[in-house]
Design a protein around this nucleic acid. Structure first.
Length: 725
RNA sequence: GGGCGAUUAGCUCAGCUGGCUAGAGCAAUUCGUUUACACCGAAUAGGUCAUAGGUUCAAGUCCUAUAUCGCCCACCA
């Protein structure tokens, strides 16, 4: 009776999404009302704050994957009676966006310096807003049932206010402080980085053996170093006190070549006798290990490298301004001439690099803002141990515990133009404050307009604000939404940001709200390129989500994620697999089409009035199936759920039941009572299947539901139907 | 250097607290259907579950080594 196209056309997805939006039910307040009005039992609200994608580019398949899981859980929760809030947002992503936007400017022939700080900020803001709205459309493409009336950008003044409150409180509690210590400086991004913002990479390097002559006697000690240029900042040579080779020299003085400074020979157990020559040069200003050693032995700290990775300070004139690599070469040449260069070995070694631009990190001494997170890490650890928050898969939980156990002070200031300015004012200037101390004021605006106050120009580490995401988006600890929807239930993201993000959210959540912000962290698998390597722009092996949407539709992509992107595993993109899921989606369409086509218009009222006998075998099996899938969803076993719905719909309903019933109802001699009975049964089974499949594949199931609505065989939208288990 | 995970059909992987005569999808082979669907159906073939020990009535599933691969953490000169 009804003419439906032979194949499901996924281009109707946009229209379906619009239909959902019109119901207003992505807003949990409305959902709550809806449930009450329809006599459904209203269960506890269910909240997930969605990871805000960086507003500096398009979303990739990894984002889509995460949102597929968010959405499946969200829809399932709604359909089981929970007013559900999926709270979306977009992240300003400090350093990442600044790098991306700076590159964009460069490609347009201009630069951030040309624009100036204020104009840069303004244009970057616009850049982000444009990206954010693109991202929002992409989120809708995957079917994300988020409440966009509550969407936030991380630089929203309402959020900034809460972020600032946290900072003020931390300052008052003595947790936030300014300190001078060795930091990771990225010479390209020209900012300090936290340890976690660095990665380690194997690079080619040299290992130079340099002779440091004794001051008071003939002879020398040979030290080995990968960074000869730092010798200009050496303030000691350290040996192991048990090292027979050097024992007698401890306390004596060496003449540092080129710099011509006297430095002592000190003893420390830390020194490895096996490494190099067993004697190690100590440069407190430019090596984290040496910095600690320097503090321990109260050594002088001599800065010889500046923020841009160039030679500086009290060193021979000819080296000033050189890049470290050039300086190293020049020094080696000079040492060789002096007969002080024993040899140079070419080696490969692990080097710390900037997570963003892969530039080798320059450890330098600098004044920065820190947060002492030791206490909060301890609390977080306890919550993990008490199981108030847990990580799926479990293996990663131990990694998180390890992170908390070994946590260091968190450097939260970044020398960027993009982000949230640290709300601090220094009386008489920042430089003066760092050198001699003095008065400091915390607030967005200067305490008075005397002109004595210099504004801090550093920005917060972006994770300082995103670490507060679960409560800042709910209006902070005093917000209306906070009371209703906090703590949230889950956090879902890829495992690469576990330490950056979830670890901080737990700590800051505990700090501001005394509660863990969520009780479960679900780590999705990583989507890899077809060849199993990481997808990256530079390699050009990425696959655009839009390509998949256009070719196979969102549902096919989603179903593939549920099956393959399991927690803790990697999922190489296999187009054949997505295609297989597209075929399944089409199968649903056609089975539904078959049922619809076989219902005569005159039979509709009889069918809808007909009650289905619960004792029928097929009905019993259907109910059992639904309960199984629910159990999988309750345990977040998406792969098993996806497999179950595919298996049941395709190989039981289509291949067996429809075939059985087909023969019966297409028999001209069958009585109309039997026809009605069979068709009612089929329709019931179809509808129940659509419901349980809806969290996984919302578009096709809704598309079919709407066809049923047109025939008055169903009402409303599928997303507001209840799964009764 | 430490931690975690993987190793199951040609390929990509499921297999939860031990009961499997080891599964799925894709690929392959053979048939079928063309008024729900070729984005279809029926069937076939294909694995001593990395290796070696151990626990058990019973091990892909637990334990211990070994090997290969991957990821994460780490301040080493």
């Amino acid at each position: 009776m009804k003419d439906l196209s032979k194949a499901y056309e996924s281009n109707i997805e946009k229209e379906i999404y619009r239909k959902w939006e019109e119901t207003g039910l992505f807003n949990p307040d409305n959902m709550d009302k809806y449930l009450k009005e329809n006599g459904y039992s209203v269960k506890k609200p269910f909240t997930i704050t969605l990871p805000p994608p960086n507003a500096n580019g398009n979303l990739h398949l990894g984002h889509m994957c995460g949102y597929s899981f968010h959405d499946a859980i969200g829809r399932y929760m709604r359909m089981t009676g929970h007013p559900t809030l999926l709270l979306p947002g977009k992240d300003h992503a400090g350093i990442q966006t600044e790098t991306a936007f700076t590159k964009k400017l460069e490609s347009e022939g201009t630069s951030k310096w040309d624009l100036g700080r204020e104009e840069f900020y303004k244009q970057c803001y616009e850049f982000c807003i444009t990206n954010a709205s693109n991202a929002r459309e992409q989120e809708k493409n995957i079917g994300l049932s988020a409440d966009y009336s509550r969407e936030f950008f991380t630089l929203d003044p309402r959020l900034t206010k809460i972020v600032y409150e946290t900072f003020y409180k931390m300052y008052e509690d003595g947790l936030a402080y300014r300190d001078k210590r060795i930091i990771n400086q990225c010479p390209y991004c020209k900012t300090a980085l936290a340890d976690i913002d660095t990665e380690h990479e194997e690079r080619r390097g040299i290992f130079a053996y340099i002779r440091y002559p004794f001051v008071d006697e003939d002879g020398y000690i040979t030290v080995a170093t990968t960074r000869p240029e730092t010798m200009l900042g050496d303030t000691a040579v350290a040996v192991n006190p048990n090292d027979e080779r050097y024992k007698e020299y401890i306390g004596k003085k060496l003449m540092l070549p080129i710099a011509n400074r006297e430095i002592p020979i000190i003893a420390d157990e830390e020194v490895d006798m096996e490494k190099g020559t067993g004697a190690v040069k100590v440069t407190p200003a430019h090596s984290p290990v040496d910095f600690d050693l320097g503090q321990k032995h109260e050594l002088e700290v001599i800065n010889v490298i500046d923020e841009e990775g160039k030679m500086t300070g009290e060193i021979p004139e000819r080296f000033i301004g050189l890049e470290t690599v050039e300086c190293s070469k020049k020094l080696c040449a000079e040492l060789d001439e002096l007969g002080l260069l024993e040899k140079i070995e070419n080696i490969k070694h692990e080097v710390a690099v900037c997570e963003r631009c892969r530039t080798a990190i320059e450890p330098i001494i600098s004044n920065q803002w820190y947060v002492d997170v030791s206490g909060l890490a301890q609390r977080s650890l306890e919550e993990l141990k008490k199981d108030n928050v847990s990580v799926i898969p479990e293996g990663q939980q131990r990694a998180l515990e390890h992170f908390y156990e070994n946590i260091q002070p968190w450097c939260i200031s970044r020398q960027l133009w993009w982000g949230q300015r640290i709300p601090v004012w220094y009386k008489g200037g920042k430089k003066k404050y760092d050198e001699d101390g003095g008065e400091i004021y915390l607030g967005e605006n200067a305490p008075d307009d005397s002109g004595e106050w210099e504004a801090e120009t550093d920005m917060f580490d972006t994770w300082f604000s995103s670490g507060q995401w679960p409560f800042s988006t709910l209006g902070g600890p005093d917000g209306e939404d906070f009371k209703k929807y906090y703590p949230t239930q889950m956090m879902i993201h890829a495992r690469d940001i576990l330490f950056w993000w979830s670890s901080r959210m737990i700590m800051m959540g505990l700090y501001r709200t005394n509660e863990v912000p969520f009780s479960k962290i679900f780590l999705t698998g990583m989507i890899l390129a077809p060849d199993g390597s990481k997808m990256s722009k530079s390699k050009g092996n990425g696959v655009e989500p839009q390509y998949i949407f256009d070719k196979y539709g969102a549902d096919a992509l989603r179903l593939w994620y549920y099956s393959d992107a399991l927690p803790g595993s990697n999922a190489p993109l296999r187009e054949e697999k997505i295609k297989g899921n597209r075929n399944f989606v089409n199968k649903i369409w056609n089975a539904s089409r078959f049922i619809i086509m076989n219902i005569d218009e005159s039979e509709i009222s009889s069918i809808t009035d007909h009650s289905v006998d619960e004792n029928l075998d097929r009905i019993k099996q259907t109910k059992e199936h639904i309960s199984n899938v629910s159990k999988y969803l309750d345990k977040f076993q998406f792969n098993l759920g996806a497999e179950a719905i595919r298996e049941f719909f395709w190989h039981t309903l289509c291949d067996v039941w429809i075939e059985e019933i087909k023969n019966e109802i297409q028999d001209k001699d069958i009585g109309s009572d039997i026809r009605i009975e069979r068709l009612s049964e089929l329709l019931y089974i179809l509808k129940e299947n659509l419901k349980i499949m809806h969290p996984f594949i919302p578009f096709i199931t809704e598309a079919v539901w709407q066809e049923l609505v047109k025939l008055e065989l169903a009402k409303g939208t599928l997303m507001e139907q209840q799964i009764i288990i």
